[in-house]
Structure formats: structure tokens, C-alpha cells
Amino acid sequence: MSVDFILFYAFAVMAIGSALLLVSIRNTARALFLLFIVLFAMAGLYLFALADFVAITQILVYVGGVLILLIFAFMLSNKSLLSDIHTVSHRLTALPNLPSFLLASVFLAILLFALSSWNNNMPEWMAAAEADGSLIQPTENNIRMLGFKFMTQYVLPFEIISIFLMMALIGAAHISRKGERP
């Protein structure tokens, strides 16, 4: 077992374990800080798929932006903490949560069954890429290729998504404004 397998399993166990702890903990603030660990571990997993720019963007956007927004919203609406403490069920599989636990685990079983039956015959484009050895190599200059692709082949989705992001941020600022609401 080589060192990259050990690191991959360490990141995977960190992500899955803290995600499980995130859904089973009662305190929302602790759950949000556990989300930090999940997002960092997922960024580490992206590195093992040779997507370094996606991993850095994940850390910048999620940890720098999304998580700060979530913590702000939690602190502005934390009166509901009191009602959260007084609930009776503490365990993961307590009776009110049993249907959702069953549904999630059955869905996981379906996904794993589909995965096990898929693995025998790969799609032909993946088999062709594996046959002629045109996989992305660790020595390749990934960010340079992504820049070329964004400005040539995918320039229309790039522009659409930038305008969409601007619309969403202006809309969010408009919705959360305080005064003169009808």
C-alpha cells in the first residue's frame, strides 16, 4: 500500500466521519464548524483526482464565502437554538428520524448496487482514453489548460454564469434589505 492510498483514505475517513458527526450533533454552531473540516477534506480529495485548481477554488469560495455567510445567518437567527435544545431525541436513529434514516440508507444501497454493476463495463470513451493513455498526468500544467478552455471552448457558459452570479448577488442584497418593504 503506497503513501497516496494512505493519504486518500485519511481524507476520505475525515470527510465521511465529520459529515456523520455534522448530521448527528444538536448544536448548530458546532455543526457549521464541522462543515469546515468536511469542505477541507473534500478539497484534499479533489487533489487526488489531479484537479488542483478546483481544490483551491473550493477552499476560496466555500470556506471564504459560503461558510462565513452561513455563520452570519446562524448568528442573526439564533433564537431557534432554545427550541432545539428542548427536543427529546438525541440519538441518530431516534424514532422521529427513523424514516429519513431509512430513506437515506436505502438510497445509498441503491447507489452502491448500481456502482457494483457498472464497474464491469466502462463507457467506451473512458476505455478508449485508458487504452491510448491520454489520461490527465500529474506533470501536466492543469491551470494553463483550464484557462485556454474557459476562453475558447467554454466561453459562452462562462459569460452566462458570470451574469447569473451578478444577478443572484444583486437579488440577495435586494431581498435582505431592511427598510421600505411593501
Partner: peptide, 22 residues
């Protein structure tokens, strides 16, 4: 990782991150 010609997966992963932020 199997698509070194189009880089479609990584490009759309970045798009998905932007959509999630919005």
C-alpha cells in the same frame, strides 16, 4: 481525469461551485 481533450469535468465542477455560492 479521463478527459484530457475537453477538460469538461473540471470546467463544470467550477461552474457547479459558482452555482452553489449563488
Amino acid at each position: 481525469r479521463y478527459d484530457s481533450v475537453n477538460y469538461g469535468g473540471q470546467v463544470f465542477a467550477l461552474f457547479a461551485i459558482v452555482l452553489a455560492a449563488a
